[in-house]
């Protein structure tokens, strides 16, 4: 819930008789203020430690790197708000890169590669949705299974080798529009569109209703099955888009691209952003901040040439701190 009541007069401050000795976070009337604070801290720390952080090149580079992740995080925010979950998005990204890379490497036109691989991604998302809605198996289980399965399919498609696409997609991957990296433009459009859908369309509000209480949503005339299928299909389609973005940035697909690790980062970003794992609550702004925070942390560790072992440690630590902060924030309200 991001709507803080402006009229909070802080009754407890005027209460000498009932001192509340429990430890409290600073008053957070601004939504996501904890997250913003953390982001500022990390940025400040990074700029002190290394000069190369606060340069335009580096910052644009960070943004390019997080763009694909931001796109799947956007889809995941919508899905998780509706009480769903998809652990296979990172793996769908991987499969997309492999399918597109193979097609391009086999001299198919680029547009065809994009259309086919994104169609595949959408179908994969729909399959998740069909299994989840019609078998009623927990989405967590279904999509963890498909994630593992698709990671294998990915290796099969690549035959275990790296496949390069040369400069075919470099306009998307390296080009800029008015100085802004094209990848970033795509990510911003997707995030903005998702935010719009969640706030201003009945479909988006359906997601909140379904996540809040599925029975009530159904009884209120919401077509829950259709909504869920659309949401999972959308998750697949956005994974496809992220796959193309990633392929264009890396100029090829190789074992180790995307997959479960990418998914876990996306889940972390969404959860850090305050989206509820139980559904019913979520904001794109929070997710965006989560993506940025994780991206900046990774970048800083890189610049400081800290071993990649610490990368995992820091992502885990950030996730834990943010999750605890969210919880304390919610309890205060």
């Amino acid at each position: 819930m991001s709507i803080g009541s402006p009229a909070r007069t802080g009754a407890s401050e005027t209460a000498p008789q009932a001192p509340d000795r429990r430890w409290r976070l600073p008053d957070m009337r601004i939504p996501h203020s904890g997250l913003i604070l953390m982001l500022i801290l990390v940025v400040a720390l990074a700029s002190f430690q290394t000069d190369s952080f606060l340069t335009t090149t580096n910052l644009l580079n960070v943004l390019r790197q997080v763009s694909a992740g931001a796109v799947i995080a956007a889809g995941l925010t919508l899905l998780m708000t509706a009480g769903g979950m998809d652990f296979s998005m990172g793996s769908v990204v991987a499969v997309t890169t492999a399918v597109a890379a193979q097609l391009i490497a086999h001299d198919q036109p680029v547009w065809l590669a994009i259309v086919v691989s994104m169609a595949v991604a959408t179908v994969l998302g729909l399959v998740n949705g069909l299994v989840v809605t019609f078998t009623k198996v927990a989405p967590f289980v279904v999509t963890l299974a498909t994630a593992t399965l698709l990671d294998g399919v990915f290796l099969v498609i690549l035959e275990g080798l790296s496949v390069s696409v040369g400069a075919e997609l470099s306009e998307l991957g390296n080009g800029t529009t008015l100085g802004v990296p094209n990848l970033l433009v795509v990510a911003v459009i997707v995030l903005a569109a998702t935010a719009f859908v969640m706030r201003y369309t009945v479909f988006g509000r359906d997601a909140f209703a379904i996540g809040g209480n599925e029975d009530v949503a159904r009884l209120s005339g919401i077509n829950v099955v259709r909504a869920k299928l659309v949401l999972y299909g959308l998750a697949g389609a956005l994974s496809g888009l992220a796959g193309i973005m990633l392929l264009s940035r890396l100029a090829g697909s190789s074992p180790g691209t995307a997959g479960l690790p990418m998914q876990l980062t996306a889940v972390a970003a969404v959860v850090i952003g305050g989206t509820s794992l139980h559904g019913g609550r979520g904001t794109v702004v929070g997710t965006t901040l989560g993506v940025l925070l994780l991206g900046v942390v990774a970048n800083v560790l890189n610049l400081l040439q800290i071993s990649s072992y610490y990368h995992l440690i820091s992502v885990g630590a950030v996730l834990l701190i943010a999750a605890v902060a969210n919880q304390l924030h919610n309890r205060r309200k």
């Binding site: 909140f208 209703a209 809040g212 609550r281």
Partner: peptide, 13 residues
């Protein structure tokens, strides 16, 4: 419904 909590309203909305 007579069971507003689980079948009637969505508490977070």
């Amino acid at each position: 419904t007579g069971d507003r909590r689980s079948l009637g309203l969505i508490p977070d909305l």
